[in-house]
Structure formats: C-alpha cells, structure tokens
C-alpha cells in the first residue's frame, strides 16, 4: 500500500513554493494548480493526476486495470490509451495519450445536469455521478469536451472515471496508477505543495487537454502530443489517432 501524499520538511516546501512561482512565470499560470500559484489552500485535498507521456509505453495495463476494477461493460471505457502516429517515412513518430476524466474545476458536465445526479465533491474535488438519481439523458455526455462520459448499458446512467474514489478514500492509489509499469502516472493532492504531483508539476513543462474549453482540468500531462487528425488534415500532414474505444474518432 503506497501513500498518496509524500511528506517533507519545511525548507523543502519553501523551496518548492519559490520554484513554483518561477515556473509559473515561464509556463503560463493557467496550466498550473492552485498550490503552485501560491493560492491559499483550504486544508482539503484537491486530487489530480500527472501523466508523464515520456514514460508511457502504450501497454494498456491501465485500461485493463480500470475495466477489472469497475467491471466496465463491453464497449465502454472509463480509462483508455490513444495511439498517435504521425509523419511519413523516414520522419515518423508514435506516441501514446492515456485518457480519463479530467475532474475539472469547472466541469461542463455538472453545469448541464438536470437532476443534480452529478457534482464535484467539495471535500476532494472529484466529480462523481449518482446512478440512482441519473436518468441517462446524455446531456453531460455531450457537454464533456473530453468524451470521458458514457451511458452505462447495465445501469442506464451516465458513468465515468472517478479517480477510484473507493480506493482513494481508503488511502490507496487509483487502480490505473498502481498498475502502471512505466510509472507514467502520478496521483496526489494538488493543494499540497509537497506532494509528488505538485513537485513534478512545478518543475516540468506541463499541459492540459483542450485548455480553450475553459474547464480547468486536474489531469496534467508532460510531453503530451496534442496533434489531432482533424486539426492537421488541411495542412497536409499525416496524423492517425487510434482511440482503442468503440468511438473510433475523437470528436
């Protein structure tokens, strides 16, 4: 059992704060968590994830662990890994993009829910769905810019990644994090400047997906390839995205 938060001394904290401020100036403040921006933390955790794409080998162990953890029905995915192929021989590249719910600070899905079945938990920032309330209207599935939601064919309600809330509440890490053989995933409290995730975010160039949507995701990436086949098609560059989901194309 690995601990979610890594503690460390006061001097280190002050160092990290300084480093955070310096990085914020260089990177653009919007892509950094509140703690790194030096905002007051209210004592509650704000869980986030950092995915270091350089360490991802596209093995899909996270996808499988997630399927097993939640018994996700066939054809649906809470967590998945996209393969991005680009270029033409001999100048080619291939990278992987692990995807999951971004647990946004401004969740577009929550805003449109007509029954109050989905909300962002005040205690840890995780966006959850109550399948007993949800009627399956699919409004949130449309509203999510990350395609992270789906209608569970068994319950008929909206479903998505919840950072393995049942594990996290017991002090465990999410299943995808624990199983990652490349240690590409770091899970932790973005409000704690001493956590592994905060330190890594503060000291690396990080990005979030579809920042222009204004959702302020809590899932950060190092070295993610943001190429999209629709985006670059008219520039004549070859990019092919394999989503490994029933939805074969990103929308």
């Amino acid at each position: 059992m690995s601990q979610v938060n890594t503690g460390s001394g006061v001097s280190r904290r002050n160092f990290v704060k300084g480093a955070g401020a310096a990085t914020a100036a260089g990177l653009g403040v919007a892509a950094l968590p509140r703690a790194a921006r030096g905002a007051e933390a209210d004592g509650k955790p704000n869980y986030g994830m950092l995915i270091d794409v350089r360490r991802c080998i596209g093995c899909q162990a996270c996808s499988v662990a997630c399927k097993a953890e939640f018994d996700v029905p066939l054809g649906a995915t809470r967590s998945w890994v996209e393969y991005i192929e680009k270029g033409e021989y001999p100048n080619i590249g291939r990278s992987f993009l692990p995807r999951l719910c971004n647990q946004c600070n401004h969740p577009a899905c929550v805003r449109v829910c007509p029954t109050g079945a989905t909300w962002k938990r005040a205690e840890d920032g995780i966006v959850v769905v109550d399948p007993d309330i949800c009627i399956g209207c699919k409004y949130c599935v449309h509203a999510c810019p990350y395609d992270a939601r789906f209608i569970n064919p068994v319950t008929g309600s909206a479903d998505k990644c919840d950072f393995c809330l049942h594990r996290v509440s017991q002090g465990l890490e999410p299943a995808c994090v624990e199983t990652c053989i490349g240690r590409a995933r770091v899970f932790g409290d973005l409000n704690d400047p001493d956590s592994e995730i905060s330190r890594q975010i503060a000291s690396n160039p990080v990005t979030v997906l579809r920042q222009g949507q204004g959702t302020e995701p809590n899932v950060y990436y190092i070295a993610a390839d943001h190429s999209d086949e629709h985006d670059v098609a008219h520039r004549g560059r070859y990019v092919d995205v394999t989503t490994h989901r029933r939805e074969e194309a990103r929308r």
Binding site: I135, G136, C137, K138, I151, V154, G156
Partner: peptide, 8 residues
C-alpha cells in the same frame, strides 16, 4: 431516448 428507460 433516456438511458434509464432503455434499461427498464
């Protein structure tokens, strides 16, 4: 069209 209706 509701998911809940589709599962009964």
């Amino acid at each position: 069209e509701l998911g809940s209706f589709e599962v009964g």
